[in-house]
């Protein structure tokens, strides 16, 4: 936080608006409806974001409030990560016991970079694609990107886009693809059970639920493998992103971007490369 942003705590207009939004959205509460193998979750936080956005386009919120809101997102995320930390702590013994298969399987989460990043770049996305594809964009990953690049950065927008998609449609999407992939590929259902744990309770429940529906005799093993892997993803996800995922994504993005800008020019001029990440 720099000098210009100080005394944000005195922006009572902003804090009152947010408090009112929180009260209203928590009163509405959580609603969910079942679609096929999963559920669509409508949470107070989603209404809160939509209402916040609508308010931005009314005279109630001014440019100043929108600017002052950014450091509060970052501080809010620090509390969220603290909360996730104290959720993980008590299960540390189980995580240590989980064994090499579960631990190594966490590296599979990097598959998202290899598969989704080239597609994002191909679709013409710029640095947004770094935020979008460096991880599955759950809370710890959002925290990392916002902390590192800021909320109103291309990377920040990218990670938020995937976070919102995952929150609303993640469960139903995982439910659909897990049943589908487990039946058309030769991989063992237990491998898919481990893969179901991607660090979100609702997505894991939907993915493992479809697996159980397809392989009912393996129910107990599927639940155990999915649960342990989910816990592990939640605990290692942030550090996996910091030390491997994000640096790898940035490197790969720069390389892909270089290829893209070279193709964009009719005559390749390697010495006059476009500014990377422009």
């Amino acid at each position: 936080m720099n000098e210009k942003q100080k005394n944000i705590w005195m922006d009572w207009r902003l804090h009152t608006i947010v408090l009112a939004v929180v009260v209203l959205t928590e009163l509405i509460g959580t609603h969910q409806f079942t679609v096929g193998p999963g559920v669509i979750l409508l949470l107070p936080m989603l209404y809160a974001m939509v209402i916040g956005l609508i308010l931005f386009f009314t005279p109630i919120v001014k440019e100043k409030q929108a600017k002052n809101a950014e450091p509060l997102i970052i501080l809010g995320v620090t509390l969220l990560i603290a909360k996730i930390g104290v959720i993980i702590g008590p299960s540390l013994p189980q995580i240590i016991e989980a064994g090499p298969a579960l631990l190594l399987q966490e590296f599979g989460n990097l598959g998202t970079i290899l598969l989704a990043l080239p597609i994002a770049v191909f679709l013409g996305l710029k640095r947004e694609s770094i935020g979008m594809t460096h991880s599955v964009a759950r809370e710890p990953n959002v925290g990392l990107i916002v902390d590192k690049y800021g909320f109103n950065s291309p990377e920040g927008r990218g990670v938020m886009a995937i976070y919102i998609f995952g929150t609303v449609f993640g469960a139903i999407f995982m439910g659909l693809i897990s049943g589908f992939l487990a039946t058309i590929t030769p991989l063992n259902p237990l491998s898919f059970a481990m893969a179901s744990g991607i660090g979100s309770g609702s997505m894991m429940a939907a993915a493992s639920g479809s697996l159980i529906a397809a392989f009912p005799s393996m129910e107990k093993d599927i639940i155990a493998f999915a649960g342990a892997s989910n816990l592990l993803s939640l605990s290692t996800g942030l550090y996996m992103s910091i030390f491997i995922g994000l640096p790898l994504t940035v490197k790969l993005y720069n390389a892909l971007d270089r290829v893209r800008s070279r193709k964009g020019n009719l005559q390749p001029q390697p010495k006059m490369k476009k500014k990377i990440g422009g």
Binding site: V18, I51, G52, L53, L55, F56, V61, E70, G76, M160
Partner: peptide
């Protein structure tokens, strides 16, 4: 968090 984010996203 998302209430602040909605305002900032504007």
């Amino acid at each position: 968090i998302l209430a602040y984010a909605g305002i900032a996203i504007g």
